[in-house]
């Protein structure tokens, strides 16, 4: 599947900062995050709760709520500069060029509108088609996400569908206008595993058909391993490691990435789990130096004094660590 990805990024973000002002002080939810999403590829943004992965993508979409301050050096989407675009221009990009699938399909769909009305509205506002044509296109769309008897269920309301079907409908609404970038924010977290498998298969299929790139936000390393070609690991609002899924899962170089993998249980082997001690830092007053230092088992003298920058050494790989783990296993 990597063959589909060509080198021009369809989404390019550099130096993204997002902070929220609260009564207790400024929360730096995202600091200096940069990534390129290539056409047709799946890039996973991985992290635990509060790592800033969802806020980063909401900033790109221009849908951060509340009193947020967003700054970036560059934010480009398919040739459009998002930093200079006005609200009207951004509104036109959403849906057609970039769209979002949320975790919770029940709250993302409007409970008082039928599925047909919600999907049809997309076609009518963006493509200016007639009501009849919008309905026909909506039925076609529901078929493309394999919703059984789409022509009969088009007038049903969200509560009449199961969780898996609602997620299919949400995905349908996200791909209705054939966007170039799909942001999937924990798209299967609320679902049972057998239904998760179906939704991930559907995303694969749609990606092949439409050639869209997917930015996958997840905390689940199994979903990353199944779906993505590249991965960017976030901790306390910053990127700590990026690279290809194969490289990083084989030999993580940031101690946080390694610790996260060691803490994940596996079905085939029964080994004592190795949890990460403590919990993620308070983003109002993060620890000095590397934000992971209070929990790190690979600590050196620089870690509590100097914040490590994200630097690339090998092609396509980078990490923010003064004392990265060295791959001990022989390569090849």
């Amino acid at each position: 599947m990597t063959k589909q990805a060509d080198e021009r990024p369809v989404l390019s973000v550099s130096g993204l900062d997002v902070s929220f002002s609260t009564m207790r002080g400024d929360v730096k939810a995202v600091s200096d995050v940069s990534f390129d999403l290539k056409r047709g590829e799946v890039l996973a943004l991985v992290g635990e709760s509060g790592s800033g992965k969802s806020v980063s993508t909401r900033a790109v979409m221009g849908i951060v709520r509340g009193n947020a301050t967003i700054n970036a050096r560059r934010m480009e989407l398919a040739g459009h500069d998002l930093l200079t675009a006005d609200e009207e221009q951004k509104r036109k990009l959403r849906g057609r060029v970039i769209s979002l699938v949320f975790q919770d399909a029940l709250s993302a769909l409007n409970p008082v509108l039928s599925i047909g009305d919600q999907l049809g509205e997309l076609y009518r506002t963006h493509l200016n088609v007639s009501k009849k044509e919008a309905r026909e296109r909506s039925i076609e769309l529901l078929r493309s996400v394999h919703l059984a008897s789409a022509d009969k269920r088009i007038d049903d309301y969200p509560h009449q569908f199961s969780g898996g079907m609602r997620q299919r409908i949400l995905i349908a609404s996200a791909i209705a206008l054939k966007p170039e970038v799909l942001i999937a924010d924990e798209p299967t977290t609320a679902l049972d595993v057998t239904v998760q498998a179906q939704i991930l298969d559907l995303l694969d299929e749609l990606r092949d058909e439409l050639g869209m790139a997917i930015l996958l936000i997840t905390h689940d390393l199994g979903v990353v391993a199944r779906m993505a070609e590249r991965v960017a690991v976030m901790y306390a609002g910053r990127l700590v490691e990026t690279g290809s899924v194969d490289d990083i899962f084989r030999a993580p170089s940031h101690p946080y990435t390694a610790a996260l993998m060691a803490s994940a249980p596996r079905i085939e082997t029964v080994e004592k789990l190795e949890p990460i001690k403590g919990s993620p830092p308070n983003l109002i007053a993060p620890p000095p130096g590397c934000a992971f230092n209070p929990r790190c088992t690979h600590l050196g003298e620089l870690c509590t004094k100097v914040r490590p920058e994200l630097i690339g050494d090998l092609p396509g790989r980078s990490r923010a660590c003064h004392y990265p783990l060295v791959e001990t296993a022989h390569v090849g």
């Binding site: 057998t194 298969d201 689940d220 990353v224 391993a225 899924v245 079905i267």
Partner: peptide, 27 residues
């Protein structure tokens, strides 16, 4: 067997085997 086949592990080679093999239907 279906549950086991749907469970994804943090191992790309193993997790990719699950592609296209979802069990049909829902409970």
């Amino acid at each position: 067997v279906a549950l086991r086949g749907s469970a994804l592990e943090p191992d790309p080679a193993r997790a990719r085997l699950a592609r296209g093999k979802a069990t049909r239907g829902e409970p």
